[in-house]
Structures are given as structure tokens and as C-alpha cells.
Design a protein around this nucleic acid. Structure first.
Lengths: 217, 217
DNA sequence: AAACTGCCAACTGTCGACAGTTGACAACAT
DNA sequence: ATGTTGTCAACTGTCGACAGTTGGCAGTTT
């Protein structure tokens, strides 16, 4: 009905959103190839916009390009996890420091709220949903007020989600994570940048270790 | 003579290299628009590969895309510089810490060599070439052995180069930079990650301030 | 003269088709 | 049976052309 999508978003842009969703949800499983003609037909668009979408996702790290072979969804890999968390630690520790020095009272309210909801869920017997973990880190990034760092973290987070299939719901780990979050909020509340950085590093180190053990079954 | 570039690199890949060079050298000045048909003809390729190259450079931050208007070379901007250095600081401080704990003796030799060459140039009356500054930071990144962080730093560095036109050759600043470099090497040599991070932060803070004052003429 | 309206050229977004490469399968030789 | 070689289908890389949008300019109105 919309020949070249006149308003709001190009076909390539829409394709990016659809593909990203399909990759992150595992609808397109890791290791599988993205056939250009097939997917283009499925999306009802031409190969041109689809190619641009594929390249875009590749630049985000959600696809790996092989010349003359096509685009593949990258597989989980221990070294990959380590390298990814090295980068994530660098970025989020810096974000934690910035948040400690820039946070407003509104930021604090939001951080406390996310932590409280996590506790409620946990005590209700439900597992600590990954959704709330993401929300916490996102709220912290908002408090850091560095759009550029936030954007980079988002890209890394995406890649973590991509191989998160290995993340088992381990209650002790979840409890430790919530404690870390609380401690982070406290450091940020006190404006203690150094401590916020240290706690964030320990937190991410724990999460990374958890993912690595999950990878080894 | 090479219709579809049979070996080694696609037309889009070549276009990326050529365009990146032209943007970084200022051959395509900041603020100017990249006309697809014009540039495509100049490069002797079609619009398809050129578009992919443009999108790729946009993902690197060297071009900004405006829907239905085209691609522009971004202009220098004080807020941009600050945000950029926030990110760069996060990454390079982490790299400095990693370098301090992972460096080999070979890494140390290389770092000392770059510093020594900087000193030689400086004492010979020549200005501290930006080339050697880049070489130092690159060598440090190699010592950190984190390909992913190194890649991110490369992207940020590129953007800094893009607006480096404002960087005047200020002798006191150059001297301070060389001192910072020496101090960094010392901390890395001692395996003192905390100190390496602190020195790097101070160094980048200085460079950032220098660029900001240069921007205000 | 200033503001508004309608047209127009230039450019981007998109499409379908062709050319070149890759990996695999089949036929053959050893 | 195993290794080698030739052939081929499938897919990516590339191209030229068409459609839609944007910003500007000329003509008109007040």
C-alpha cells in the first residue's frame, strides 16, 4: 500500500528494525545465513534496501559479513564473551562514575524504583527478569548523561543479548546481581565515583563469569 | 580494467577507503554534502556500492545522514568534542589499565622507542608531529591486547582527526603531552594499572581542553 | 516591497536484471 | 574405496532506470 514508504521511515530503516528483532529473539538463530532474495521477498522489499539493512546490522555487530558468502548471525564464543565484557566494563564503569557526579534526585528515585521492583519480583518467587536488569542499566546510563557512551553500551548490550541464550536463571547469581545494583545506587547517591566504578566492575565481572560457566554447560 | 573487482576488495570497500581518506584529509570539507551521482561517476562506480560506502562511513561517524537530503561531513562543535572525549577517556583509560597488566617486554621497547623519537623531533626544533602522537596511542593499544577496545578507539580517533583542524601547534601543550606519554610508559612498565588510568585521564583531559580553546580561536 | 503559491530541477529511495564468484555434487581416474 | 577434476546451481556484487520527495525560484497577490 506504501510504494516507497513516503512518510517517517525508509524501507531500509524498517528492514533494520524487523531484522534486528528477528536476530535478537533468535527467530533467525545464531549460525544461520541471511538469504538476500528470500528475506527480501518475505519483507516485500527489494534487495537494495535489504542490503543496506544487513550492512547496518553488521556495523552493530549483530551480523558478520563474509565476502561472496553472505551475512551470518554470529555464534556464542568464550573469547567473544570475554572481549565483549572488557569493552562493556570500560564503558559502564565510566558511566557509573559519571552518574555518581551528575545524577539528579529524579535519577535516584528512578534507580531506587527499579531496584525495589526487582526485589518485589524476587520475593514473589518469580525469577529476576532480564527485562529489569536491562532497565536498571539503562536508568543508570540516563543518569550518566552521556548520549555517546549510552549508545555504545546499547550496541554492546545487544551483542550480549544475542548470546544470552546461555544465561541460565541461577537464583544465587540473581541475588548477587540485585545486591550489586543496590550497592551501585548507594555509591551513586553518595556521589562516590570511585566506588561506583569499582562496584560496577565487580558486578560485570560476576555476570561475565556466570555467562562463561553457562557456556560450558 | 576490473569490471566488478574480481579479487581482494569489493567496489564498496574501495569506495570506503577512498572516501574516508578524502573526508579525513579535508578534501571533502566539513559541512559539505556528498552528491551520490557525482561522486559515483568520479570513482567510476555505480550508486549502489557508493551508497553502501556512505552508510558505512556514517556508521563510523564520519558522515551524518539526512533523509532525502543526503550525507554531510559533520562540523566541529564544542559539545561534540566534550562528548567525544568522554568516550575516548573511558576507552583509553581502560586500555591503559589493561596495558599495565598485560604488556610484554617487546611492548615496552616499542613504547620507549616512540617516546624517544618524539623527543628527538622536538629537540630538533621540529613540532611534535601528530603522527607520533597517534603512533604512541596505537602502540599502547597494541599492548592492551583488546582488539575490540582498540577498534572502538580507532573510530573515536577518526572523529577527533576530523575536527583536528582546530588543533594549533602549541609548544607548551606538546611538551606536556610528551611528559604525559613518558609518565604513562613508566606506570605501564611498573604494572601500575591504577596510575596508568589516572595519567591517561589527565592526559586526555589536557588534550580535550587544548582542542576546546583552539575551537574558540 | 513583502508574503504567499505553484511549479520545477536535482537528488535520494527503490526496483529489476545481469555478471562474477563460491561451494557442492557428480563423473572420472587411481 | 578414495582422491581429483569438471560442471553447475545458488547467491552475492553491480549496474542502469524509474518513482517520490525536497528545496528553491518565478510569478502572483496584497
Amino acid at each position: 500500500m506504501t510504494p516507497p514508504t513516503p512518510l517517517h521511515l525508509s524501507l531500509a530503516g524498517q528492514a533494520v528494525d524487523v531484522l534486528r528483532e528477528q536476530v535478537l529473539t533468535g527467530e533467525i538463530p545464531p549460525g544461520s545465513r541471511v538469504n538476500e532474495v528470500e528475506v527480501a521477498q518475505k519483507l516485500g522489499i527489494s534487495r537494495g534496501p535489504l542490503r543496506e539493512a544487513i550492512r547496518h546490522l553488521a556495523s552493530e555487530g549483530l551480523l558478520t559479513l563474509v565476502p561472496h558468502r553472505g551475512a551470518f548471525v554470529p555464534n556464542a564464543d568464550a573469547d567473544e564473551v570475554k572481549a565483549l565484557f572488557e569493552l562493556r566494563t570500560a564503558l559502564e564503569c565510566a558511566a557509573a562514575e559519571l552518574a555518581a557526579s551528575r545524577r539528579t534526585d529524579v535519577d535516584l528515585v528512578r534507580l531506587h524504583e527499579v531496584c525495589a521492583e526487582s526485589r518485589r519480583n524476587y520475593k514473589a518467587g518469580q525469577p529476576f527478569p532480564y527485562r529489569l536488569d536491562l532497565a536498571f542499566h539503562q536508568t543508570l546510563l540516563d543518569a550518566a548523561r552521556s548520549a555517546r557512551i549510552a549508545e555504545q553500551v546499547r550496541l554492546v548490550q545487544q551483542r550480549v543479548v544475542l548470546l544470552r541464550s546461555a544465561l541460565e536463571d541461577d537464583p544465587p547469581h540473581q541475588h548477587a546481581s540485585m545486591d550489586d545494583h543496590d550497592e551501585l545506587v548507594k555509591a551513586i547517591e553518595d556521589g562516590d565515583a570511585a566506588r561506583a566504578s569499582i562496584v560496577m566492575r565487580r558486578h560485570l565481572s560476576r555476570v561475565c563469569a556466570q555467562m562463561l560457566t553457562s557456556l560450558n554447560h
